[in-house]
């Protein structure tokens, strides 16, 4: 189990996408050619060039408009489907308990991309291997937090000690409920043994305080 994790607090996310561009900048990922397709969200999908992005969802609850934003990307699952699917052992847990792809071992079979429930693994056709978020392994190795969380202005994306962040989250959800947001919740991914990235959600989205089925990642 990882001792350092990222916490995503969707109730504080303003969709500024600093995380998204910080990821591209640190990892020197090229820009994709996109078009405006009727939503602020862009690029439309994760790919070998887009490892993290903010999703935008509009929601109408009895005439009341809501607009949900959250940063999404690889969850660095403890029980990771991509690792199970990989035939060569290219995908593995690192010494930081993050999920990484060893490009030398990768044969480009694409099974991992198919297996990932979050659809965050991209496939680089020119190089013939899979690519995804590395949790900024190079930064972690040098004592820095990931590029995405370092860029977040509001505290919607926080990197830190697992225990501390879980405590803070529990307290915040309690406070949010006291302040009238009765559906505030905290998704810690036990069902999938996702230990890398936790979500604290403002769960008016959708109406039920949902977990995995209502998780915005799946609404594409």
């Amino acid at each position: 189990m990882r001792s350092q994790i990222c916490l995503i607090d969707t109730s504080k996310c303003i969709g500024c996408r600093a995380c998204q561009s910080a990821c591209k900048q640190w990892n020197q990922l090229p820009a994709e050619s996109t078009t405006f397709a009727g939503t602020y969200e862009n690029p439309p999908y994760f790919s070998c060039m887009t490892w993290t992005k903010v999703v935008f969802r509009e929601h109408n609850d009895n005439g009341r408009t809501s607009w949900y934003m959250s940063k999404q990307g690889c969850m660095h699952c403890t029980d990771a489907a991509c690792i199970l699917a990989c035939p060569t052992g290219a995908i593995h847990h690192t010494d930081h308990e993050t999920v990484a792809i060893n490009e030398i071992k990768c044969i480009g079979c694409n099974y991992c991309a198919a297996a990932c429930a979050f659809r965050v693994i991209g496939f680089d056709r020119s190089a013939n291997f899979a690519k995804k978020c590395t949790f900024c392994y190079d930064r972690l190795e040098n004592g820095y937090e990931p590029a995405c969380s370092s860029a977040c202005p509001t505290g919607a994306l926080v990197f830190g000690d697992r225990g501390d962040l879980i405590n803070q989250s529990t307290q915040r959800v309690t406070r949010m409920r006291q302040q009238g947001n009765t559906q505030a919740g905290f998704f810690h991914g036990n069902a999938l043994k996702i230990q890398g990235v936790f979500y604290r959600m403002r769960i008016e989205y959708p109406a039920q305080p949902g977990f995995i089925d209502h998780f915005p990642v799946f609404v594409t």
């Binding site: 561009s21 996109t34 405006f36 939503t39 862009n42």
Partner: peptide
């Protein structure tokens, strides 16, 4: 700046759903 163009690639105009239906305008 390509990274920013990727996120906001084109000029757009925001229109409410009712007006769009009235004018036969589809999203995008």
């Amino acid at each position: 700046m390509p990274w920013l163009n990727e996120m906001m690639p084109e000029l757009f105009v925001e229109i409410d759903e009712e007006l769009a239906a009235e004018l036969g305008i589809d999203n995008g």
